[in-house]
Design a binder for these strands. Structure first.
Lengths: 260, 260
DNA sequence: CGAATACTTGAAATAAATCAAATAAGGTGG
DNA sequence: CCACCTTATTTGATTTATTTCAAGTATTCG
């Protein structure tokens, strides 16, 4: 995964378990440690579990107990697939690709552990984008019907869902500001700073990380061409702001990048 | 308002009332016809009322009974204002403007009757954009705390809110495809077709309408400069696809525009 | 190891931005 | 209701950031 040392592992769970390892019950299998599923999860603070008391966790665990491994390049879902479940990424990473009637495709997001997949499908009953694993990944499967029931019974879950939606809208709105008015250089700088921050929030190293996506993916996400991404990386490196070695990135001057 | 003849007026409510007139109870005043508030509202099909039975409407009306007039150019809310309420636009139109730390501003959306304002504020507790009236407008005020209570008591309201959020995310996603990859010509064509469709959905004339926003607003929304908007309008007119007379627009070749 | 995919870099082409100036529309106060 | 000032729009000429085209290098994967 990104970076080397998950910080959360140290701070939240002193040596008991690797919090970012894939969950240990498999889809269809009888779960062996179901009770530990959410309570020991390193992503708990980012997920619905964050708004529940210890006594309410078992209920959540019943809903979250199923999960799925997705291999690199495989699809978790595709545009038009019938919607049943939301997903929370437990480990690995994804890109979401929004299509247009004509061939035009656009990488609409990169998903990191703790983030949700499938929010756009609730309104129409079918997924509005492709979700493609950028590396071998694991997702929690959340039956949306069950989640709505849980929302009904536990207010804080409802509230959490609303906040998740709302934050997604704010994130999109920020991305639109970027796409609509910024120079290529600012887009790339903004991408790096933002990506680094998200890694940090999730307990990964923020200074040094691997980009699992291609330059073309990044370009699509930022509304520029892959060559422009590459050139801008090189320029930043020449200025001593970062080091680029293929997919391996090291950020030297976060503050300078943030102000470009 | 946009166009001349609200179609919904004819189809939904045979001559009893002007469905797009401002609501008749004022903020702070004792409402005189509170019971009629939602049940007679022309936007009912677009709003939370759509998922309630007649017997449940009074409860909704208690929450929706307050409303507010906003004059052209006035702010309904500003970035950073403390969040208490969502708003549903009843008549008129708005633009929402998302700011960036530096001066950079971006028109993030145009809001038409029946659409919600303030969804981005739920997650953080403060509004994430400015909402500015493009003409004298009226909004229903929805206390979010009350709405969450209603969600708790009536499942279909919860479901409606989730769908509203989700659709907003899909809309944003479409806009990002547009902003990230399309030529200026396609952006403008797409804007016209989309705007026309939204007017139609709300019962206004789709072929002939007034743009309440400036060319600069449109440009900001589409990620291009105002001069480019103007030039593209002129080009479309020369090609016989539309007529432009300042803010007055007439669409001749909807299909051709949709395929640009 | 070899083919396919991904990345970098340079040179030329181009879509859109910027600069500029003239015209039109809107709002305000007398 | 007019005259005046401001704001908005159109259109042309020029500049520029980014794309496109191209070619070479590096990396990944079976």
């Amino acid at each position: 995964m990104y970076g080397s040392t998950p910080i959360l592992e140290r701070s939240h769970s002193p040596g008991t378990t690797n919090l970012f390892a894939p969950p240990y019950t498999r889809l269809g299998e009888a779960p062996t440690h179901r009770s530990a599923n959410c309570s020991l999860c390193g992503l708990r603070a980012l997920c619905f579990a964050s708004c529940l008391g210890e006594d309410e966790l078992p209920r959540l665990e019943r809903i979250f107990s199923q999960w799925r491994m997705i291999h690199r390049r495989d699809y978790l879902f595709r545009v038009g697939d019938k919607f049943h479940s939301l997903y929370i990424l437990r480990s690995g990473s994804f890109k979401t690709v929004a299509g247009h009637e004509d061939g035009l495709e656009h990488v609409s997001d990169f998903i990191l552990p703790g983030e949700a997949l499938g929010l756009g499908a609730i309104g129409s009953g079918q997924y509005d984008c492709d979700a493609i694993a950028l590396e071998d990944s694991a997702v929690c499967i959340i039956s949306f019907a069950s989640l709505e029931s849980l929302c009904h019974d536990i207010r804080s879950v409802q509230h959490h869902l609303n906040r998740t939606f709302s934050r997604e809208i704010v994130r999109n709105s920020r991305q639109m500001v970027l796409l609509s008015g910024m120079t290529a250089e600012r887009r790339v700088a903004s991408f790096l700073v933002d990506f680094s921050r998200r890694l940090l929030e999730r307990g990964y190293a923020a200074r040094s990380f691997t980009l699992r996506m291609t330059r073309e993916d990044i370009g699509s996400y930022l509304g520029i061409k892959l060559e422009t991404v590459s050139r801008t990386f090189s320029r930043f490196q020449r200025k001593g702001l970062m080091r680029v070695d293929g997919k391996q990135i090291e950020i030297f001057e976060r503050e300078v990048l943030a102000q470009i």
